[in-house]
Design a protein around this nucleic acid. Structure first.
Length: 549
RNA sequence: GCUCUCGUAGUUCAACGGAUAGAACGCGAGCUUGCGGAGCUCGUAAUCUGGGUUCGAUUCCCGGCGAGGGCACCA
């Protein structure tokens, strides 16, 4: 058992003797934010003092004396109004260093999701349209979630669901027919702009796509779809994502319509359309099949759910989308639950905030759209400029790695559900609270290790070395990962990575690591443990960790 | 109108009901014998508002103000 567990267990037992029942796992125990307060702290005594009719400081003292000594804890003391602070023993801090170095790529893994299969659906761009910023966000969050779950022991299946049919496709096809010289993205913009003047024509194209009734449109469609999908693949490669399965609306549409028709009791007919009355459940009504008989996105999502189930035997299916779909998802998930009660709770929705702009709302119809791709390219240019004096072997590769780090970190540093205010300059910045900052600290650690190797200094963990503000951070890593995975919140890892990188940079500035002294082997070992920790943090964020920058 | 989110330094974000609210950018002052200045050190500055619950509230509850999303054949 780890030290955290030991402390919680002991506290739980002491509380029981005092007449308070609290599961060991429920015992509040936090990482201190001031090392003067030790490594772990709990406010238990303050919480239960009144209930037990005793002073909080007095209760804290009582708990401490009942606790006796604990393995891995060097000192337990009361502080302030009745906080109980735990100081880890030197061997535990040193032990985390050894663990990190031995486990390498597995450092930080846990078993909370062991034996489970989890499907994660994310990115979901639409062929015929631009890969926009929302897709970038969904991709960054979804990929990180997938890796976090893998670190927790789950078998993760990555899926991508793409809208290859629907009105947007009809708009793009119509635009292309009118103006063949336009790119697909431009054709879509043109079709959207003209929709109100050519509604009937474009609606007809939509129907023809569903029914494959017009050979010319079919060919154009096939060509455009293939071109889009191929292009998306190059982006996934840059972003570091590899999907196991692709689902398409052209497949889910028919299935979805069939699902709805087979479960008439769940739906109602209204004004010629088939709708789901969500009001009974505190939700709202949504159309599943239109009055002209076409399945909507809602019906398609029901079809998708069944197809996912057939494809993989998962325990949980997570879908990552923008928060504007929150209410929409509640309705679809409710309908799905009524159709398949046996799958209750297996489908989860994780939403990301929306990208907003200081300069005002953008729209694909105006031309002021900033796509996910354009941001990536701007960043790559910026990184290339910066990399001119780099030591890296391949500047082109490095520029891409740094650029991806910059965008992804920008997205993953904050709570997933909140909107992100996009500021071009900040996003393009490679300094401060950023992905490249963490990458830089990692590259520095690599450089130091390289030097140690050249100087013949062999890393060695000294169990008796006194812990410092850097080494005392490392043992927290597996706990941070577990929490981020449990709460589906990658930002805990991003915050931690920054903290470790900052502590390392600070330490580095004040300490000669490879200096021939007797403490050098230990300092080299600490550097190595930091290297492993930072690299794994970056991996969990879907960011690469170059050895040199 | 109904409903769901969210209001923290000048700006962009942290803070699982706890201790002196933590970073980054900006601004001001510094850091050249060293392993990488994409760096380090110091300073500057914040919980929208009024109640309530609590030993303790940025966090939970209620009201107000402000911003954003969603609400029938788009996705």
């Amino acid at each position: 058992m780890n030290v955290r567990g030991t402390i919680q267990q002991a506290l739980s037992l002491v509380l029981l003797k005092l007449g308070v029942e609290l599961d060991a796992q429920e015992v509040p125990l936090e990482h201190t934010d001031d090392f003067a307060h030790g490594d772990y702290a709990t406010g238990l005594a303050l919480r239960y003092a009144k209930k037990l009719d005793i002073g909080s400081r007095e209760l804290a003292e009582k708990i401490i004396s009942s606790l006796g000594t604990l393995a891995g804890v060097s000192k337990i003391e009361m502080a302030g109004a009745g906080f109980i602070n735990f100081h880890l023993s030197r061997s535990v801090v040193a032990g985390a260093m050894s663990d990190a170095r031995e486990a390498e790529k597995a450092w930080g893994t846990g078993d909370a999701e062991k034996g489970k299969t989890i499907l994660v659906e994310y990115t979901d761009p639409n062929p015929f349209k631009e890969f926009h910023i929302g897709h970038l966000m969904s991709n960054a969050i979804g990929e990180s979630l997938a890796r976090l779950l893998e670190f927790s022991g789950a078998r993760v299946v990555r899926a991508n669901y793409q809208g290859d049919v629907g009105l947007h496709v009809a708009k793009a096809l119509w635009g292309k027919i009118q103006k063949p010289a336009l790119s697909w993205g431009e054709a879509y913009a043109y079709g959207s702009e003209q929709y109100e003047h050519h509604t009937a024509e474009i609606d007809l194209v939509n129907k023809e796509v569903y029914e494959k009734s017009d050979a010319k449109i079919n060919d154009l469609y096939t060509e455009g779809r293939a071109e889009s999908l191929k292009h998306f693949e190059t982006l996934y490669k840059t972003l570091g994502t590899k999907f196991d399965f692709y689902f398409f609306e052209s497949e889910t549409a028919l299935r979805g319509r069939a699902v709805v028709r087979a479960h008439q009791c769940v739906f109602e007919e209204s004004e010629g359309a088939i709708v789901f009355k969500g009001e009974k459940y505190g939700l709202h009504t949504r159309v599943f099949i239109t009055s002209s008989g076409l399945p909507t996105y809602e019906a398609k999502d029901l079809g998708l759910a069944e197809m996912k189930k057939e494809k993989v035997q998962f325990d949980t299916s997570i879908t990552v989308t923008a928060s504007e779909q929150n209410d929409y998802f509640s309705v679809v998930l409710k309908a799905l639950e009524l159709i398949h009660p046996e799958w209750r709770g297996q489908f989860q929705h994780v939403s990301h905030g929306m990208m907003r702009f200081a300069e005002g709302k953008m729209s694909s119809r105006k031309g002021n759209i900033i796509t996910g791709e354009s941001i990536l390219h701007e960043l790559i240019e910026g990184a290339r400029e910066r990399a001119k004096e780099s030591r890296a072997d391949d500047i082109a590769v490095l520029s891409e790695q740094v650029a991806v780090a910059a965008v992804k970190y920008q997205i993953l540093r904050q709570t997933a559900g909140k909107d992100i205010i996009f500021e071009r300059e900040r996003a393009l910045s490679l300094e401060g609270d950023s992905g490249p900052y963490v990458q830089y600290a990692h590259a520095r650690a690599c450089a130091v290790l390289e030097k140690a190797k050249g100087g013949g200094v062999v890393a060695h963990v000294d169990e008796n070395a006194s812990p410092n503000e850097l080494s005392r951070l490392l043992y927290r890593f597996p706990e941070i990962v577990a929490r981020a995975s449990r709460e589906r919140e990658p930002h805990y890892v991003a915050t931690f990575a920054l903290e470790v990188a900052g502590a390392f940079n600070s330490w580095y500035a004040n300490e000669q690591i490879v200096d021939g002294s007797t403490s050098s082997p230990h300092k080299v070992a600490l550097t190595d443990a930091v290297r492993v920790t930072l690299r794994n943090c970056l991996w969990l964020l879907g960011i690469s960790a170059p050895d040199a920058m």
